[in-house]
Simulated scan of single mutants.
Amino acid sequence: MSLYRLKQFYWSMVSKINDEDIDFLKMHLETYELQLFHQLPTHEQKHSINVARDVKSTCNQRVLQSGNLIKVALLHDIGKIYSNMNPIDKSIMVIVDNITNGKIKLHKKSKNVNMYYNHGDIGYNLLRKYGYDDRFLFLVKNHHNNNITQDIELNLLKECDDRN
């Protein structure tokens, strides 16, 4: 476990949505998407905003188009609207996952374990009902899939997600 994980925990405990965040959201999300987004816990909202800002900045640095990827970043954890995990629960999952080398994944009946490992699939299924295109859904579904390595956008999303 790294010192960075401690920083992430601290950030999640003190996260607040400010006016700049609200403006950023309004710039990139439609009304129905904002309604979905606001169902996330505040710490997950702030995380997604930070990931989206990082995506925008990284795309600018690498001279890549970021338009759709910013929206993907904002909605990448949308499957967590069905979760009641707080930052402490999430931290425990990260620690247990690390200690067991991922073997905790076998306890799929636990709601927290299921959410931790499958929120991408859950978000995919939720957003599919809203008619998002296959590429958008692929990115949401696979943002924790380390078996896909030859996808520039997915790799950028994963990189920004890991940093935030």
Rank of each mutant, 00 (worst) to 15 (best):
H143P: 08
V55C: 01
K141T: 04
F138A: 02
L127P: 01
Y124I: 09
D151P: 03
L74Q: 01
G120K: 09
V94C: 10
D134R: 11
H107L: 15
C59Q: 07
Y130N: 08
L154T: 02
K103L: 13
A73D: 00
N68M: 11
V96T: 11
V51R: 00
I95W: 09
I95G: 02
R135D: 08
I81W: 10
G123N: 04
N145P: 04
N147F: 10
G123W: 04
I148W: 06
I92D: 06
A52N: 03
N125P: 04
L139G: 03
M115L: 10
N142C: 07
R128Q: 14
N114V: 00
Q150N: 15
H107I: 12
K111V: 12
D133Y: 08
N60K: 14
G123M: 00
D89V: 06
K111T: 11
M85L: 11
K141N: 11
P87C: 08
F136P: 02
N112E: 13
M93I: 06
N84R: 12
N145C: 00
T58P: 00
I122Q: 09
H144I: 03
H107K: 14
G79E: 00
S110Y: 13
K129E: 15
N145I: 01
Y132I: 07
M93Q: 08
T58K: 15
N84E: 09
N50G: 10
A73T: 05
G79M: 06
K56V: 03
T58I: 09
H76T: 01
Y132D: 02
H119D: 07
I152E: 14
S57C: 09
K129Y: 07
Y124R: 10
L64D: 05
L75W: 01
N86D: 13
D97G: 00
D89C: 00
N114G: 01
L139R: 06
N50Q: 11
K111S: 11
R128K: 15
V113A: 04
S66G: 08
G79T: 10
N101Y: 12
M93E: 06
S91A: 15
S57A: 12
L64W: 13
V72I: 13
H76Y: 02
L106V: 12
S83G: 01
Y130M: 15
K129Q: 15
L64R: 13
K80N: 09
S110L: 13
Q150E: 15
K129T: 12
A52V: 05
G67M: 03
V51Y: 01
D133F: 04
A52E: 06
L156P: 03
S66F: 07
K111Q: 14
H144P: 09
I148A: 07
V72R: 00
L64V: 01
S83Y: 05
M93T: 08
N146I: 12
L127N: 03
N146Q: 14
V113P: 05
L137S: 03
K129H: 11
F138H: 09
I122S: 04
G67S: 11
H143T: 02
T58W: 04
K103F: 12
I122F: 02
N60T: 10
H119K: 07
H143W: 07
K111M: 09
I92R: 13
N68L: 10
L126S: 01
I122T: 14
G67T: 12
K129F: 01
Y130P: 11
S83L: 07
L127Q: 03
N101F: 14
Y82I: 08
V51D: 00
K56M: 14
Q65P: 10
K105G: 05
D77I: 06
G102T: 06
D54S: 13
N86K: 10
D54R: 13
G123R: 06
